[in-house]
């Protein structure tokens, strides 16, 4: 497509998509306190950010929740994918898959509100535990969805061959199946990680007064109005996001290779 208009249109869409993000980042260097007039260059907001111990603890909370929930949900998700693929009856398989997808398509408010009811009834105190459980819960189906295609494309003759050659069920799982689906597992872990880091709505419902994650903190700061701390924070988060995206594409590349190898 060599003509001018498609390019102009795409350029316009990209401008709209990126302008607000760069606008935010630009004003993080503003020595005046507003997001409208640029007075001069300063790094004060970053200094303030790094000396704010409360915020650093919140960042640490967020990372701990993300890593823990991603790890646990990856384990449960892999088990779930295996359960779905080895379900005997077609109806049973479809039922499991539909139940699995409920949390993916549900709006965040519903997930948040229903988990709030659940935790209150069971008697789990709102705070670290409830947020962790909620994050594990909504990450599991994502892991399943990422792992399932890998299991589906795996030829059943691989398992038959392993069984013929005398491998036990456990050996088949650890030496044949798991190595084969490793790229899917990594992709699932990674998606779970980003979902957890990014989540606001569900966390907002199930976090009590004492415990906060970064998204919830940004929300309460933003409701108070503009403070250029948030701009500095968003600049750092954006750089971190780019770093994650590169990581994700690296994993995807590795995903491609084994598949191509098997096709030979």
């Amino acid at each position: 497509m060599k003509s001018f208009w498609p390019r102009a249109y795409l350029a316009f869409v990209f401008l709209i998509l990126y302008a607000p993000i760069f606008y935010l980042m630009f004003y993080s260097f503003n020595s005046g306190g507003t997001m409208s007039s640029f007075d001069g260059f300063t790094l004060d907001w970053y200094k303030e950010l790094f000396s704010d111990t409360r915020l650093l603890i919140i960042v640490l909370n967020t990372i701990v929740i993300a890593l823990l929930s991603a790890a646990i949900s990856t384990i449960i998700g892999v088990i779930g994918a295996l359960a779905i693929i080895y379900a005997r009856k077609r109806i049973y398989q479809n039922t499991l898959l539909s139940l699995n997808n409920v949390l993916i398509v549900s709006p965040d408010v519903i997930i948040g509100a229903s988990f709030l009811i659940l935790f209150t009834i069971v008697g789990i105190k709102l705070g670290f535990t409830s947020v962790l459980l909620a994050h594990i819960a909504f990450s599991v189906p994502i892991v399943v969805i990422m792992v399932l295609p890998k299991l589906q494309e795996m030829s059943s003759s691989l398992i038959d061959a392993a069984r013929d050659l005398g491998a036990s069920r456990f050996d088949v799982l650890t030496k044949v199946i798991l190595p084969y689906i490793t790229p899917g597992i990594f992709a699932g872990f990674f998606m779970a990680l980003t979902y957890s880091l990014d989540d606001f709505a569900v966390t907002f419902f199930v976090t009590g007064n004492g415990f906060t994650t970064l998204s919830v903190e940004i929300y309460s700061l933003a409701r108070r109005g503009i403070s250029l701390n948030i701009n500095a924070l968003s600049t750092l988060l954006f750089l971190f996001t780019i770093f994650l995206v590169i990581g994700y594409y690296f994993i995807q590349q590795r995903n491609e290779k084994p598949a191509a190898g098997v096709r030979k």
Binding site: I21, M35, F200, G225, I226, S234
Partner: peptide, 16 residues
Amino acid sequence: LPSWVNLLLKAYAFLG
């Protein structure tokens, strides 16, 4: 890529 940026930060940008 922009969909990976925290939704609240994008909303906040429009406050400015």
